[in-house]
Structure formats: C-alpha cells, structure tokens
Design a protein around this nucleic acid. Structure first.
Lengths: 200, 200
DNA sequence: GCGGCTCTTGACCGACCGGTCAACTATGGA
DNA sequence: TCCATAGTTGACCGGTCGGTCAAGAGCCGC
C-alpha cells in the first residue's frame, strides 16, 4: 500500500499496472489478488490511508492554535484556525514536493479527476472524503460567521467548499505548470483573508 | 475531433481507445493514423479546439460589459468584467451539464490531472493554456488594482491564478460529488466579491 | 506424523492497447 | 488516357492489461 500510494501519486492510477505495483513491493502477482479482490480495492485502501493522515493533520493543526478565551476576541481565534488549516494542507504538499522533487498533486484530487467518470464506487468514495473535508471547514466557517468575523455576503458553507476547491485547483495548476508548492498556501491565505472582516 | 472531445470529456483520455474513437467517428483505424501520428496528437488538437472556444467566449464576455467612461466609476466596470468572466466559464459548464446530464469537468483540467505526470508534451501544452487563461484574468485584476478596486493585501497576480484554481477546483468537486454546475459560478462570484473593496 | 489453515507462487487466460503496413481506391491535372 | 498524389482499408504486430487458478509451501494445534 505504501508503494501503491507513491506510484499512484507520482504517476497515475491507470498508468501503473498491477505487475509494476507488485514488483515495487516485492510481492508476487498472485499474492496481491489474495488480499485485494481487484486493483480498485487497493485504490480504495490507499484513499482511506491518505484520508486518515489528512484528518490527523487537520486535528493537529486545530489544537496548535492557542484557545483564546471564548469569543471575546471577535473571531481572531477562528481566523487563526482557518489559516492553520491552510498551512497544514500546504505543508503536506511541500512534504510531497521535497520527497518527489516536484508538486505531484493531491492524492484525492488526482484519483477523482481520473476515475470519477469511469469507476462509480471510487467516485463515491472520494466524494465522501471531499464531503468530510468540507464539513470540517464548514464547522470553522460557521463559527466564524456566528462571531461576525465574516464579511457581509460571505456564505460560510460556500466558503468552506471554496477553500477545498481553491486547494484542489491550485495544486492542479502547480502540478501542470511545474510551479512551487508554496503558491498553494499563499492563495489559500489570500482567499481566507479576503473573506474575513477587516481587522480580524 | 468532435467525437474525441466528447469521449475524452465524458470518460477520460486513457479509458478511450483509438478503436472506440474511430468507431464513434465512423473512421477506420488506419485512416486515423494517416492524419495523426499518435493518439496524443489528437489530444493536443482537441485541447487547441477547446482553447479556441474558451478565448472566444471570454472575449465575448468582455465586450458584453458596457464600457463605462474611463476609470471614473472607481472600478465598477472592471468588477463587472470579472463577474462576466465567471459567468462565461460557468455557462460553458452548464452547457456541458445539459448536454451530458452531469458535470463532466473542464476539458483542460481533466486532461491535466490525468496526463501531467505521464506525458510531458501534453503537460506543457496544457500549462500554456492555463498560463494564457491566467494572463487574461491578471490583466483584469491589475486594472482593478490600478483603479484601487482591490482590497488591501490582495495581489492581482495571485488573485488571477486563484480564480482559475477556484474554477478548476469547484468543477472537480462538482464532478466528483455529482453536484450542480451552478455552484461553480457562485463560488467564483463570492471570491471575486470578497476580493473587491466594499461598494464597487 | 497428520490434517487443516493461511499464504505464496508462476503459469496462464482472453481482451485490449497503441501503432504499422502493404495493398488498394478515388481524384484531379496534364 | 495515364500518372501522381491523397486518402482508405483491414489485417497484423508485440506488448500489456486486469484477473484466475491449481498446485504447493510454511506453520499451527493435535
């Protein structure tokens, strides 16, 4: 599964055959099919693995923000949490960038773009990951809205979705244009800052 | 080429073989290779076709905005142009949605995600399209900045890239989550509105 | 030693992949 | 009428795809 994660990330799902997958892991072809009914089940397992890592990273980013006493700060804490989330996903990508020498894309986004139209089970599985990601951000955005930290006209739910989209889009552009991973979190910070009221 | 555009869009590059491509166009396999050296050259041609359509649509959106007398409006015109751009790309997607019954993704984004890591020539070709798209938006954003229409701290170049990314990300989420195309332009409008000064 | 279980192995399957090719036909100008 | 050129055709290539399977290996309690 570690090898699969690496190969799917640096190349793509369809471009990596079961043969190559097994060779990389020093496993024989037949053994693979003893544990996985099909190649797509391996992909599902890889997705779950990445998802677990992402939730852990997001949780870690959330607790890293010192809890300011309740809402007295007028949303400063929730704003810091949003920026911390942006940094967290940005750091995951810079990690990939140093490991592989270039931006390789989001594990979910890559698979989603490639397989959403051809494998409905994987599509649904990835949709659930995106939904959970959005839900976590929406919680934060709603909290920001409740504290009056969002500008007029900003819908917290749409902002949450926009942030996931911003990340997915930036990483696609970085991967295609061979640009640096640092741009990704920059763009996220700018969108967040633009959505928050002046001064928070 | 029309058939190829449809099949690449509704499925994916690698999932559609040359055989099927030819069958859909009622062309024999050998004839195809008389005109295209390889399957990837067809993809390149399809990309160019889509790109031409996109530039035409963006130009059309630009002239649709009535030119307010110079910069006296304090950026209202340039703001309208930005929103018109968002509507234009949104309409392209709703067009696809009605044609195919679901959000099928961006012709460039789909191919970029799938092929950026496995076909460097196509990757570079797509990167050029994204760069041109960004350049067109950056022109608008810089004009907005010159007229003082952008909020403090908003970098026009980064905003331009963010808008392309927002579109790419939203469409990926819509495609994966089987949601409506209308969300795409909504998110774009919200990002644009958040980046502009109050009142413009 | 034995039976039963988990796991491994490599040969094998049909289907399909992108791409080639020599032979053929249709067309249009001289 | 003849020829050159443009375009067509379907058989064919080696390679790879995801997936199957019967046989066997290692290990366990008994």
């Amino acid at each position: 599964m570690r090898c699969a994660a690496r190969l799917f990330l640096t190349r793509s799902y369809r471009s990596v055959g079961v043969e190559e997958l097994c060779a990389a892991a020093d496993v024989r072809r037949g053994s693979f099919y003893y544990f996985f009914p099909a190649k797509s089940d391996l992909a599902k397992a890889v997705i779950d693995r990445h998802a677990g890592a992402l939730w852990a990273r997001l949780d870690q980013a959330a607790v890293a923000v010192p809890a300011g006493g309740a809402e007295v700060a007028g949303g400063a804490e929730v704003a810091a949490r949003l920026h911390a989330m942006a940094d967290a996903v940005g750091e995951i990508q810079t990690g990939f960038e140093t490991r592989f020498g270039r931006v390789v894309g989001c594990p979910f986004g890559n698979l989603a773009a490639e397989l959403a139209t051809t494998d409905d089970a994987l599509r649904a599985h990835l949709a659930a990951v995106f939904a959970e990601w959005e839900r976590r951000l929406a919680e934060l955005c709603r909290a920001a809205a409740d504290q009056g930290a969002l500008r007029d006209g900003i819908d917290p739910g749409l902002l949450a979705k926009s942030l996931v989209a911003q990340f997915q889009g930036m990483i696609l552009l970085a991967k295609t244009g061979r640009s640096a991973a640092s741009e990704i979190s920059q763009a996220l910070h700018q969108v967040i800052a633009a959505s928050l009221r002046e001064g928070v």
